[in-house]
Design a protein around this nucleic acid. Structure first.
Length: 641
RNA sequence: GCCGCGGUGGCUCAGUCGGUAGAGCGGCUCCUUGGUAAGGAGCAGGUCGAGGGUUCGAUUCCCUCCCGCGGCUCCA
């Protein structure tokens, strides 16, 4: 029909070149004409920066680029296409299932359905159907329809009808068909399901029903997709390795900590784990000394009245362990704030005392929902490296800047990647909106000045103030909040805290609640996974294991162990009952960084044979040199042995 | 707390279509005295998560609870 065929349009390519193609040429065909090699790995295209299907006809001049799986946006296209194929399988298997949304995620994708709970048998059936769809290379076809038409198509699915109603009036609604399955979707998608050779279901679970639909049940099925089977296999292998470093497995195996069925969520720190905790404490205390902190110790338990003052009774009671003694209600403290506030309030204070920085490492108890307990990273009892800074408003930026610098340094010591988040006023909050706005603006100013990239999470603040959170990731990529800096204009007022200013008038201080590592528990859990159980020498509970080759060297080994312990090294030795190879293996699986072997040669030469984790082979050196080496690594808190 | 899956010696797992259980590692003992990731032999160790029900008989089937795992919600 088209006179347009005569019309040619100009396509600009990423390499700066451009070509003329007939109007109506699809993005895919144009790409092949430009660069067949790049077109081969393209699963979609970028048209003027916007992801589109390869089947999209080009209608006007513009910039066009291939979109491959290696591009984050391309990866999302593949994940989203995978979600459609999964939804197709589920709706075939359970026709009453109502698809809701199926977005890509950081790891892969999920798709939520209003439907009955899935079972393991369902999963097998789903996988069979997915394989069929992929093998048949079923096409993804885009169709644009009117809103009325879309409403007719999805009339049996209230969720989709709601999404359709959100499309601006007059705009066409796009839908995608894959075989028998039709979904409301903006797209784009891969051309066909043959791109999903590496589609894998990670699992399914119930999700909380939407508030508007009480009584209904929703299921989420999660998965991940790769263009090839080989890429999926590589991913699964890496994932299995990550699972092997789970701190919940490593902790008991390395005798660091354990949990008991008797009291879930409460860590038992074993002797070796306690050594690590003490080292972490020392690390943080060094900073406290440099930065002008004082350490305090306050009650673990407060009466209800104190929590009513602090606001915990109203806002946090359901997460507290409560008890009644002599007809008075008490709560075990879930946070250190009340103790710090009462400490400040002991006597009248002067502006000359500010900033007053009070640190407290006390066990905290929170009645976390049973289903959320997760080893050390989510426990019901834990100790934070906590402090409360009582400051005047003009002291806030400098204090937060110092904290930020320290966080950067600390994370560098542990070689942890971290991300930053600014959380703002939640629905349940104390105080005035004006005070909140001021606090949020202050944090934002400091963050902007620091140059750190951060994301804003509206409504995620604590009930008493906005906060900056530091997140680190565990071995499976789950993100955990560790450090946090929270500005609080509320609690000081509620406790009636005051100091006398230079002007002679009484002022209310601002409180900065802050933790750096978070809690020993969570931080250590993540760190253990990060280093796969190979703690840096300064943290390793046993730094050195000494092995005599035969029992002839036992006296020499005893001598070395005595000397080295005197020099502050954490040393163990094993006797000669097992073969040397066996004892080396035991030391390796115990994740001891330095293994020292002493045989007749070493006794004669007055040396030791050193095997260091992460280094090939072994070397011979005088005992004093070895001590100096380890002490230097420990003193500098070096990460590698 | 919600949904799904699971629970067999300290650990990892096999097994019993209902007739009270096996292995490897680890532990202990003995032999071996060895040169950089598992030397050999023997022994000990389990009321099969707990309680109730069905049954002549339950670790096995059913119910409840506890604990664990994966998600959801929530959080240091």
């Amino acid at each position: 029909m088209t006179p347009d065929e005569a019309t040619r349009i100009r396509v600009r390519w990423p390499d700066g070149s451009s070509s003329d193609v007939p109007a109506g040429t699809t993005a895919g065909v144009a790409l092949r004409g430009w660069n067949p090699e790049k077109a081969r790995t393209a699963l979609a295209a970028l048209l003027e920066g916007q992801a589109v299907d390869l089947a999209r006809p080009l209608t006007r001049d513009g910039a066009l680029a291939p979109l491959a799986f290696s591009d984050p946006a391309g990866r999302e296209v593949l994940q989203h296409s995978a979600a459609h194929v999964v939804a197709k399988a589920i709706t075939e298997l359970v026709p009453s299932a109502l698809p809701t949304v199926g977005p890509p995620t950081e790891e892969g994708f999920y798709y939520d359905f209003e439907m009955r709970p899935l079972t393991a048998e369902d999963l097998q059936q789903i996988e069979v159907r997915i394989r069929e769809t992929v093998q048949r290379k079923e096409k993804f076809e885009r169709v644009e329809v009117s809103k009325d038409e879309a409403n007719r198509l999805f009339r049996s699915n209230p969720h989709k009808l709601r999404y359709i109603s959100e499309v601006p009036e007059g705009e066409p609604v796009s839908i995608y068909r894959t075989g028998s399955f039709t979904d409301l979707c903006r797209g784009p998608h891969v051309p066909d399901a043959g791109w999903l050779q590496g589609l894998h279901i990670l699992g399914f679970s119930a999700i909380a029903p939407e508030a508007s639909e009480p009584g209904s049940t929703f299921q989420r099925i999660r998965g991940v997709a790769f263009p090839t089977r080989a890429e999926l296999d590589a991913y699964l292998k890496q994932r299995a390795e990550a699972e092997a470093r789970d701190h919940r497995v490593l902790g008991p195996r390395l005798e660091l900590f354990a949990f008991s069925e008797e009291i879930p969520g409460f860590p038992f720190w074993h002797p070796k784990g306690m050594i690590v905790v003490r080292q972490l404490e020392a690390f943080v205390r060094e900073h406290l000394a440099e930065a002008g902190y004082s350490e305090i110790r306050t009650p673990l338990l407060f009466p209800r009245t104190v929590y009513e003052t602090s606001g915990h009774w109203e806002h946090y009671r359901e997460n507290m362990f409560l008890t009644t003694v002599e007809d008075r209600e008490f709560g075990i403290k879930p946070m250190n704030c009340p103790g710090a506030m009462l400490t400040f309030r002991t006597r009248s204070r002067s502006y000359r005392e500010l900033p007053m920085r009070l640190a407290e490492f006390a066990p905290l108890h929170r009645l976390e929902a049973s289903g959320t307990i997760h080893g050390l990273t989510r426990a019901r009892e834990f100790v934070q490296d906590d402090a409360h800074l009582f400051v005047s408003e003009d002291q806030i930026p400098a204090e937060i800047q110092t904290l930020f610098d320290w966080i950067k340094r600390a994370m560098g010591t542990f070689r942890l990647e971290w991300t930053c988040e600014l959380s703002t006023r939640p629905e349940k909050f104390m105080g005035t909106i004006e005070a909140w706005d001021r606090a949020e603006a202050t944090l934002k100013t400091v963050l902007d000045a620091s140059g750190a990239a951060y994301k804003v999470s509206p409504g995620e603040g604590a009930f008493y103030g906005p906060k900056i959170d530091i997140h680190i990731r565990d071995s499976l990529g789950r993100s955990w909040q560790c450090g946090t800096i929270q500005l609080d204009f509320q609690i000081p007022t509620r406790f009636g805290l005051q100091y006398q200013g230079a002007d002679g008038a009484l002022h209310t201080p601002v409180v900065i609640h802050r933790v750096i590592l978070g809690s020993w528990e969570r931080f250590f859990g993540v760190l253990l996974e990060h280093c796969a159980g190979w703690l840096p020498p300064w943290l390793a509970p046993v730094q050195v294991r000494v092995l005599p080759v035969t029992e002839r060297q036992i006296p020499r080994v005893n001598e070395l162990v005595q000397t080295w312990r005197g020099a502050g090294l954490r040393v163990e030795f094993t006797d000669s009952q097992d073969t040397l190879s066996k004892r080396i293996r035991e030391a390796e699986v115990s994740h001891i960084p330095y293994i020292v072997v002493v045989g007749d040669q070493e006794v004669a030469a007055q040396t030791v044979a050193l095997r260091t984790h992460g280094q090939k082979g072994q070397r011979s050196l005088p005992p004093d040199d070895f001590v100096a080496l380890v002490r230097a690594k420990v003193a500098a808190r070096e990460y590698d042995p």
